[in-house]
Design a protein around this nucleic acid. Structure first.
Length: 384
DNA sequence: ATGTTC
C-alpha cells in the first residue's frame, strides 16, 4: 500500500536524497495516514528530521530520544545598547553543573515527579542545543511584536534544549520491550509510554525555563517567558472525525502561537506568526535551518580554513562560547542550510508570516566537554 | 540526541 506524503519546499531548496528516502519509508509504516516534510528536512537516525506524521498508531521511536525538545524565548530587562557580550561571556560559568537552587520548588511549578535525571535539570546538553542572547534586527509586524510583549530595545534569550537523559531512558526502555513497532493507542504499554512522554514534555519545558533562569541570574538580569514550544512529540489529533496521532519530529507547532525558527549562530533567526490554516503541513512548521552536513563532517571540511579561534566569532559579529572542539566545528554555521530559504518557503506556502528577525549576540554551547575531566588530555591529538 | 565510547 502507498501512503501519501509530500514535501513543503521550493525548487531552490536543496533536500538530501537520503532525507527523502527516509520520509517516503516512514510514510509507509503501518497505520500512517499522512507525512509531511518541511523545508528543513534532513536525514536522521532512521527517520527524517523536519517532518510531521499522522498515524493510527503511536511510534515512540519516531518521536526519538529527545522527547519534548523545543525552543523557548525570554524577554530580558537588559538594554541591547548596554549589553556587552564579552562581559556577559565571563559571567556565564558552571552552567553544566547541577543547579544549586531549590529543585523541589522548581519541580512543583511544572508538576514534575522526581526522576533519576534531575541533576541535569537546567543544563543545555550537547548537539544542536544552545542558549543565545539576541537583539531585534528588524521588525516586519510591529503590532504582533507588541501583542507578544516584546520590547525591541531589550535583549532576548532563546533556549533550545530538551529532556536530556530522561527522554533517552524512556525511549531506551520502550525499544527494549517493543522495538520500533507502532503501538495500538489503547494498550497498557501505550498508556504507560504516553504518561512518561507527558512527564518528559514538562521536564523539557522546565529544563528550558531553568536554563533561562540560571543565565538571567548569572547576568544579574530579570526576564519573562514569551513563548515555549515543543518540536519533538506525539499528540492526539481529531482529524476528519477520527482520533489520530500526530508525530512531530523536528517540526514546530503552528497551533501554539508565535515561535522562533532559529538559523545558525552565524545567521539571523526569525520570529514568526503561524497562519490559521496549516492543515497541509499537519499544523507544523520548520524547526530550524536544517543540517546540510552530517555530524562529524565539519571538522574535516573546515579545519583547513578555520581555526577554533576563528569559530568563536561569527560573520554577524556574535560571540560563541564552546570549549568542546568537535562541537565547535560540528555546529559551525557552515553545517546549516540558509535560514532565509527555509523561512521563505514557509511564507510562500502560506504557513506563516514574519514578525521580526533576531540577531545573535552571544551563543552559549558548553564550557568544557563533560566527559573529559581536567588534566585528562587523551583525545587532544586525535585526527579527524 | 544521550551522566556519550568497550
Amino acid at each position: 500500500m502507498n501512503h501519501p506524503y509530500h514535501l513543503i519546499a521550493s525548487a531552490e531548496s536543496w533536500i538530501e536524497g537520503e532525507a527523502l528516502r527516509q520520509l517516503e519509508q516512514t510514510a509507509q509504516l503501518p497505520g500512517m495516514r499522512q507525512a509531511v516534510g518541511l523545508p528543513d528536512l534532513h536525514p536522521g537516525n532512521g527517520y527524517p528530521i523536519g517532518a510531521a506524521f499522522l498515524s493510527d498508531l503511536i511510534y515512540p521511536a519516531l518521536v526519538g530520544n529527545d522527547i519534548g525538545c523545543g525552543m523557548t524565548l525570554w524577554q530580558t530587562d537588559l538594554l541591547v545598547r548596554k549589553f556587552k557580550p564579552e562581559r556577559a561571556a565571563e559571567r556565564l560559568q558552571g552552567l553544566e553543573d547541577p543547579w544549586e537552587g531549590a529543585l523541589a520548588d522548581w519541580r512543583a511549578d511544572f508538576a514534575l515527579e522526581p526522576t533519576a535525571f534531575d541533576t541535569a535539570l537546567g543544563t543545555i546538553g550537547g548537539g544542536n542545543h544552545f542558549a543565545e542572547m539576541q537583539c531585534i534586527e528588524s521588525v516586519l509586524d510591529p503590532p504582533a511584536l507588541l501583542t507578544l510583549g516584546i520590547d525591541p530595545d531589550q535583549a532576548l534569550l532563546l533556549v533550545h534544549s530538551g529532556s536530556r537523559g530522561l527522554g533517552e531512558a524512556i525511549l531506551h526502555a520502550l525499544i527494549a520491550a517493543k522495538g520500533h513497532a507502532g503501538l495500538d493507542p489503547e494498550t497498557p504499554e501505550s498508556l504507560d509510554y504516553l504518561r512518561q512522554h507527558e512527564q518528559a514534555l514538562r521536564w523539557a519545558e522546565a529544563n528550558r525555563a531553568l536554563i533561562a533562569r540560571r543565565i538571567l541570574d548569572a547576568l544579574n538580569a530579570d526576564g519573562a517567558r514569551r513563548l515555549d514550544v515543543w518540536h519533538n512529540l506525539v499528540q492526539p489529533m481529531d482529524w476528519q472525525g477520527e482520533r489520530l496521532w500526530l508525530h512531530r519530529k523536528g517540526a514546530a507547532p503552528s497551533d501554539r502561537g508565535a515561535l522562533v525558527i532559529p538559523g545558525s549562530r552565524g545567521t539571523l533567526s526569525y520570529l514568526v506568526k503561524p497562519c490559521v490554516d496549516c492543515k497541509q503541513s499537519l499544523y507544523s512548521l520548520a524547526h530550524g535551518a536544517g543540517r546540510k552536513w552530517k555530524r562529524g563532517e565539519a571538522r574535516g571540511r573546515l579545519s583547513g580554513r578555520q581555526r577554533p579561534e576563528d569559530l568563536i566569532k561569527t560573520a554577524l559579529g556574535g560571540r560563541v562560547i564552546c570549549e568542546d572542539k568537535e562541537l565547535l566545528y560540528d555546529e559551525a554555521p557552515e553545517n546549516y542550510k540558509g535560514i532565509e530559504r527555509v523561512v521563505g518557503d514557509l511564507v510562500a506556502a502560506g504557513l506563516c508570516t514574519i514578525i521580526a528577525a533576531l540577531r545573535p549576540l552571544l551563543t552559549y554551547k558548553v564550557r568544557r566537554p563533560a566527559h573529559r575531566q581536567p588534566g585528562m588530555r587523551k583525545q587532544e591529538h586525535r585526527r579527524s
